[in-house]
């Protein structure tokens, strides 16, 4: 372990207090207001991690992925890849290390291009290898993702949803990036195909030593593949813990409600009651104090006024007054562990 190159000490992908604020002009005559799509998010992904990012629609998951890909610049904070800040670097520079897989394989492939052209695009753009080798690399990649080589010259409209998603995966991997942002990669697919694609993603994870940020609202999928889970609410990470721990014992009331909302196939169970109410707060006008307090069954006086503290370091955290003491204790424990252990802990 001492002989490890120094780069492995860094998380392969790190977000330091990243925020993204949009100015929103609601009507022509109002003053523009700020929408904090991503609010003070800190995350660390170590090599080989699969971090599941869950949360309701509109909570900022997709904005976060756009920030990571460099499609948007953070308003404040830093994104680091291998310990190097990405601020100011072009999308092109980070494209070789971080690639996305999108939700809808019907929208993510240009209908006017053949499968071969789609998969070879990253190679051409970055002038990787000789042009004459493109075909070889493409067929190799297609083989890896389970696409027969005879589909090389097919167009996306001739493929099934699962096959299309395989093409999108091949395109993302053909440059051999280290980090893959999977933005709900299975939610647009038939249930029967979902597991095939998930298994493929996990096989590729092991084969290429990839690091995944896996954005999803499907908790069963996240539980199945993620090593760590971060729960997002109104732009903030409110709980981030080891997957097994979080699913066994969610600490934040919102995480609990999310887990309770999973539909179970048992007969007679009916629809789960989450006590969340129907109102998702307006992100332009978030509630004061803890953003979750209007929907929280455990809200105390304090929650209405003060925001619970954000913890930046350590792998476990909960942003909730209920667990104030517990959290402090845990951080101390983790810190102690870290300082004694020589191995960088990836948890």
């Amino acid at each position: 372990m001492v002989t490890d190159p120094p780069t492995t000490a860094h998380p392969v992908l790190e977000l330091r207090a990243v925020s993204k604020v949009y100015r929103v002009q609601t009507t022509m005559f109002n003053r523009p207001r700020d929408l904090r799509a991503v609010d003070d998010v800190s995350l660390q992904l170590h090599r080989g991690d699969v971090l599941g990012l869950v949360g309701e629609s509109g909570c900022g998951k997709s904005t976060l992925s756009r920030l990571l890909l460099g499609l948007e610049a953070p308003t404040s904070g830093e994104v680091l890849i291998d310990g190097k800040p990405m601020t100011g670097t072009s999308i092109r520079d980070r494209a070789r290390r971080i690639q996305p897989i999108f939700q809808d394989p019907y929208a993510s492939l240009n209908p006017r291009k053949t499968v071969a052209d789609i998969i070879a695009l990253p190679l051409r753009v970055h002038s990787i290898g000789e042009r004459s080798d493109d075909a070889k690399r493409v067929t190799e990649m297609m083989d890896r993702v389970g696409l027969p080589a005879r589909m090389l010259l097919n167009y996306p409209n001739q493929l099934s949803g699962g096959q299309r998603q395989r093409v999108a995966i091949a395109r993302a991997l053909v440059m051999r990036p280290e980090i893959i942002i999977c933005d709900e990669p299975t939610s647009a697919l038939d249930v029967s195909v979902q597991s095939q694609i998930l298994n493929l993603l996990m096989d590729l994870h092991d084969e290429f030593g990839l690091t995944y940020l896996f954005i999803s609202h499907d908790l069963s999928v996240v539980q199945h593949i993620a090593s760590r889970v971060a729960v997002m609410y109104l732009g903030r990470i409110i709980e981030a813990r080891k997957s097994t721990q979080l699913f066994a014992d969610p600490l934040h009331p919102y995480s609990k409600a999310l887990l309770d909302s999973v539909l179970t196939p048992e007969i007679g169970m009916g629809l789960p009651e989450t006590n969340l109410g129907a109102t998702f707060p307006n992100p332009i006008d978030p509630p004061p104090g803890c953003a979750f307090h209007p929907r929280c069954g455990h809200a105390m006086q304090r929650c209405h006024k003060e925001r619970p503290p954000t913890l930046r370091e350590g792998s476990d955290r909960v942003e909730c007054w209920l667990h104030d003491d517990l959290e402090a204790e845990q951080t101390r424990a983790v810190d102690a562990q870290r300082s004694t252990a020589a191995t960088p802990d990836t948890v």
Binding site: L71, S90, R92, S108, N110, V125
Partner: peptide, 21 residues
């Protein structure tokens, strides 16, 4: 649309996106 976003995330230049995608 996602294939244009994908092209941007790959690092395609704007003229390339406009003419090819």
């Amino acid at each position: 649309i996602e294939y244009v976003t994908a092209a941007r995330a790959i690092g395609c230049s704007t003229p390339r996106i406009l003419t090819r995608e």
